[in-house]
Design a protein around this nucleic acid. Structure first.
Lengths: 205, 205
DNA sequence: TTTTATTGACAGTGCGCACTGTCAGATTTG
DNA sequence: CAAATCTGACAGTGCGCACTGTCAATAAAA
């Protein structure tokens, strides 16, 4: 089993490998976001990606490894979008917070698989749960940082800010889940409104 | 396989069956709350309950059936405790809300297995997830009802009350999870304080 | 005591899935 | 062309667990 070095169909070995990895991650997101964690088996991922098992183990040690990688990619994407929205936003603290939340919601509205995978199915296995928890904590810290920056001296003192940030992020997650499941007759706008209002009233004195 | 009718060791047939069911539910809670859903197998539950497989299928159709029953029992217990606290509580709206939240937290603090099972592990399988979601919705509705009663005309109009209740309950769940995992240096009191404050500020105009 | 219900132990089956190994055919290189 | 490597298909193994069936020992009833 020689290490891949030679170009194939005009694509270098490392590019091919990276491409296959992406295919597998895409398949993982598709299955995780539409069929659920239980049906996201190694076999099913390979079938969806139209790749055989050997290429699965080329990029991932096992099933958990792939699932965590899928969540990682989502976390990166969401963080980038939120930070970008914060940079672009103009206006007061409330406006900036609202812009960040709107960007977050928009990604999920455009591709609900992301929301289902990151907020619902991510609670299925120990490995993913750890990842999900870290994701929420990351965003909670982001909320804290922004609140300090936006509200300055009016920001909450530690550790009340951390607690409130967790309350906010956890609540937002639950709200989005209910929304994705169609249990709430609300538009994306309504969710953004409620969340933005919550942020504005709970993260400062 | 005759239907059980005869007393055994001085216990009637129906009592014996009910007793075995309780043993299995206890074992289910123990495993779910300390080992996690993955290790809460039918075999493990039987071993922990010191009963053989046939008695498992005497009371439950399958593994999911037991898991849901475990959550059901927890939901009943929590609901009873909260309603009881609301009835006993005196004082203004904030005091009543706080009493209810304190009762909720106290149950979980006394037996963390309940919190782990109902808030963490309950997200592991589809069947339990449905149950968990319904549990949160039930408490969210309880929050709405109480808020209407406590705040009267100052209560939020529908559906903003529902949305805010979901935000509140979801946040509380996440906060408790972080607390149970020891990721937050806070006492039960601190959790109650933060949650009560959140309730008081977000559920009325 | 004889008969029958009740219990516990445990073998045994079936299934799904993770994971490994083999092989022939396609593609590139010399 | 020949040689090396890359690829896809697929058989085959092992494991854990849900779930079923049997049987001997025990306790209660006749």
């Amino acid at each position: 089993m020689p290490t891949p070095t030679r170009p194939y169909r005009g694509v270098s070995a490392s590019d091919r490998k990276a491409q296959r990895r992406e295919q597998l991650l895409d398949a993982g997101l598709e299955l995780l976001g539409t069929q659920g964690c239980g049906r996201t088996t190694m076999t099913a991922v390979c079938a969806t990606a139209r790749l055989t098992e050997r290429y699965f183990y080329e990029s991932f040690r096992n099933r958990d490894d792939l699932l965590v990688a899928v969540l990682d990619r989502i976390a990166d994407q969401l963080r980038d979008v939120v930070l970008d929205a914060l940079q672009r936003a103009t206006g007061d603290a409330a406006a900036k917070g609202r812009a960040a939340i709107a960007a977050f919601i928009e990604v999920i509205e455009r591709d609900p698989r992301i929301g289902m995978a990151a907020l619902v199915e991510s609670a299925s296995t120990d490995a993913m749960r750890q990842q999900r928890h870290q994701l929420l904590r990351t965003f909670a810290e982001l909320v804290v940082t922004q609140a300090r920056e936006l509200y300055g001296e009016d920001a909450l003192p530690s550790p009340r800010d951390e607690i409130n940030a967790l309350l906010f992020i956890g609540g937002l997650a639950e709200l989005i889940v209910a929304w994705l499941n169609g249990e709430i007759t609300a538009s994306g706008q309504d969710i953004v409104d409620a969340a933005a209002h919550q942020f504005a009233t709970s993260m400062h004195q």
